[in-house]
Design a protein around this nucleic acid. Structure first.
Length: 219
DNA sequence: GTCCAGGGCCTAC
DNA sequence: GTAGGCCATGGA
């Protein structure tokens, strides 16, 4: 990975959009739930599901009292309700098994071990595990999602997820706050530019984008 | 009505 | 190792 270029892209985006401040002071367990609910779903729909869940409390204790069907009914707006309900219940089971039910203790183990543990939960893959590491546990990692793949691909920086993740960590340092911003900035960019339709007009990375420059529209 | 959105799992090849 | 189907809902 061209880490100098990755760093430069981060600076361009930060300059264009400013701090995004994702999930700043939220409860870590709620962040974990949000990370599952937003899988293959807009944050808007995940948030709607989270709001319904808040009625009964978003905590391991509250989820232990529910069934997959009961939970699925409440998180319906996020889509894939039965699959996500099963994942959330499996996540609580892992917290119970590994940390005696304490979210704080579950998240306190070394990052590598936490990542492994998260990946053993059915329904939590690499992206969701990294989102939890970064946003719930405050560990320095980079979340490689569809936006990052597409944007970096268009910029000629396409690479396997692992290479992207490690490249971003090298480029920005082991700094969770910066890596948090980097992911948020990429999502911000991806929502308005670099989609199925090019939508390059006004893209902050227009000058950096070889695929766009060639066609005279950048981004 | 059609397409797509901030994944992950399973199966087939 | 990768391509394709599947899970499901909401908004454009």
């Amino acid at each position: 990975m061209d880490v100098d270029r990755l760093r430069s892209l981060y600076h361009h985006l930060h300059e264009a959009y400013g701090p995004q401040s994702w999930w700043p002071a939220s409860d870590p367990f709620e962040v974990m739930v949000g990370a599952v609910l937003t899988q293959r779903t807009t944050w808007r729909n995940a948030e709607a599901a989270l709001a319904r869940l808040r009625g009964g409390g978003v905590s391991p204790t509250a989820l232990r009292r529910t069934t997959i069907d009961g939970l699925a009914a409440r998180i319906r707006p996020a889509g894939f309700p039965r699959a996500k309900a099963a994942t959330l219940i499996a996540l609580v089971a892992a917290i119970d098994r590994e940390a005696g039910g304490s979210v704080e203790r579950f998240l306190a183990v070394p990052a590598g071990r936490l990542r492994e543990r998260l990946l053993t939960v059915r329904g939590i893959g690499e992206e969701t595990a990294d989102a939890i590491l970064l946003y719930a546990a405050g560990r320095p990692t980079f979340v490689v999602d569809a936006y990052a793949r597409r944007i970096l691909g268009r910029l000629g920086l396409g690479a396997p997820d692992r290479a992207i993740r490690e490249g971003m960590i090298t480029a920005l340092g082991r700094d969770a706050a910066r890596l948090n911003e980097a992911h948020a900035l990429i999502v911000r960019l991806g929502k308005t530019h670099c989609r199925a339709e090019p939508l390059c007009e006004g893209c902050p990375l227009r000058a950096e984008c070889p695929s766009g420059i060639g066609k005279g529209r950048g981004g």
